Simulated scan of single mutants.
Amino acid sequence: MKSMLPMVLVMTSALLVTACKQPEAPVEPVTAPLSTAASSPVAATPAPAPAATDTAAPAGPVSQASFLGYGDMKLGSTIEEARTAWGGELNGAPMEGTTCHYLWPKWISRPSEFAFMMEEGKFVRYDVGTDKETAPGGGKVGMSADELKKLYGDALKSAPHKYTQGGQYLSLDAGDVAPTRLVFEADAVGKITSWRVGLSPQVDYVEGCS
């Protein structure tokens, strides 16, 4: 009787070779569940904010208005000092033969919304005609005269408007803070339409640089 051992060895070898040639099963990536603040001590790093462009309004607080100036721009500084403090492009230039003109940010569509008055080489006043800015003390375009009086109390002085029948100017001195004044303009129904902060006498120029 012949031994079966050689046949068994051949069959075993064949099976081993076949097994070695089988493709490996793909390894599925392990997807970890999203971690929460409670389960992970390391917070996710937020994506960096997109860089601001020259045509966009500057980031930061909605208003930087104060009795001293606007942001780093100080009332009474030279035009060049004011431009440097602003740090961006400003539109506007003086007309020949004039000593007073306005500058305004590139992102402003109309200077009546927000502009800086320059006179005799100095930054002397800034004008606001939009509700996107807040005056020192909390006043804003769109408020009523009564709301302003509640904010500022007896310190707010009233005077008739030069051009608007029934309108008024509501003004407030900065006192010891600075030699400046805040002036609101209200229409005939008592709604605030604009405001300005500046040095005297420029803050009282009703027609601006006109």
Score class of each variant (00 low, 15 high):
Ala159Arg: 09
Asp187Gly: 06
Ser171His: 06
Lys122Trp: 11
Leu156Pro: 06
Leu151Gly: 05
Ser171Trp: 08
Ala155His: 03
Phe184Arg: 10
Leu156Gly: 01
Tyr152Cys: 05
Glu185Phe: 06
Ala159His: 04
Lys191Ala: 10
Pro136Ser: 14
Thr134Pro: 01
Gln168Asp: 06
Asp146Ser: 11
Lys191Ile: 15
Ala135Trp: 05
Pro179Tyr: 06
Gly142Asp: 08
Glu185Gly: 06
Arg181Tyr: 03
Ser158Leu: 09
Asp173Gln: 15
Phe123Trp: 14
Ala178Cys: 11
Ser158His: 05
Ala186Asn: 08
Gly138Met: 09
Met118Val: 15
Asp146Arg: 01
Leu172Glu: 04
Phe184Thr: 08
Gly138Cys: 04
Pro136Met: 10
Val128Thr: 01
Ala188Thr: 01
Thr164Ala: 10
Thr164Met: 09
Ala186Glu: 05
Glu185Ile: 00
Arg181Phe: 03
Gly175Asn: 11
Glu147Pro: 02
His161Gln: 07
Met117Thr: 13
Tyr152Ser: 05
Tyr126Ala: 14
Ala188Ile: 00
Leu151Ala: 07
Lys122Asn: 13
Val124Asn: 15
Ala135Gln: 02
Ala178Ile: 07
Val128Phe: 04
Gly138Gln: 03
Val128Asp: 06
Leu172Tyr: 10
Gly121Glu: 14
Gly137Cys: 02
Gly175His: 12
Ser158Trp: 02
Lys140Ser: 01
Tyr126Glu: 02
Asp127Trp: 15
Ser158Glu: 14
Gly139Cys: 07
Asp154Ala: 13
Lys157Phe: 11
Ala178Ser: 15
Phe116Pro: 05
Ile192Glu: 00
